[in-house]
Amino acid sequence: MSMFKIVEKEHFSENVVKLVVEAPMIAQSRRPGHFVIVRTGEGGERIPLTIADADLKRGTITLVIQAIGESTRKICALETGDCLTDIVGPLGQATHIEKVGTVVCCGGGVGVAPLLPIIKAMKEAGNRVVSILAARTSELIILEKEVAEFSDEVIFMTDDGSKGQKGLVTAGVEAVIEREKVDLVVAIGPAVMMKFVALTTKKHDVPTMVSLNTIMVDGTGMCGACRVTVDGKTKFVCIDGPEFDAHKVDFDEMIMRLKAYN
């Protein structure tokens, strides 16, 4: 009876998969920044995934998953026609979108997927959008075309220099801030990347927003597994977030807590 049927699957790279899944109710209520909790199989774990896109006509949502553990590997192994056992959402607070001027959107690895709806919405709100896509190597850059469609400029940063400039995302951010007035930075990617983007923009006093992907169980505020310290106070990523002021997040604690089950 499951209605969460996979209607399209695309391999972005060996370990990164895009799934377009039937979830009409979520498709119509989701906004940029929202996430869902997904479960695969009867003994499946509940894991949070950010929504990359939605198609109202088809009643679908798009998820981008990187196989890093047991549960994500199971999801990535599903094929078109298969069903996800459970999807619940949209959860979390939607991104606050307004016209602020110039917005730099930094995406690291699969973080580009949840960044895409924010890029779109920021552009539609009338902002100048400069997107910086960063990855270890060129094959791991995803959604390049889609990002370019809604950005005034796209900068690529790779660790090995195989695409764009060689270097970390922070170098790209720094370069843009030095050449023009930046009003907002949005960074989504691995925790350590967001930490260093936050440190960089703090130096220049540019407001910065990050979307955190912590361990969760229910995703509705019930368990507290996702708690992070923001501005000295404990917050729940699932209901208070997932987006927070990057300059106030205790990234070291967050990175430590991500290793709870490693």
Partner: peptide
């Protein structure tokens, strides 16, 4: 739905969780 914590130092260390979790 929302578990309470005590707000004491170190409460976010690994291995400390709510009864709900």
């Amino acid at each position: 739905g929302l578990p309470r914590f005590m707000g004491i130092p170190g409460e976010n260390f690994i291995g400390i969780m709510s009864a709900n979790e």
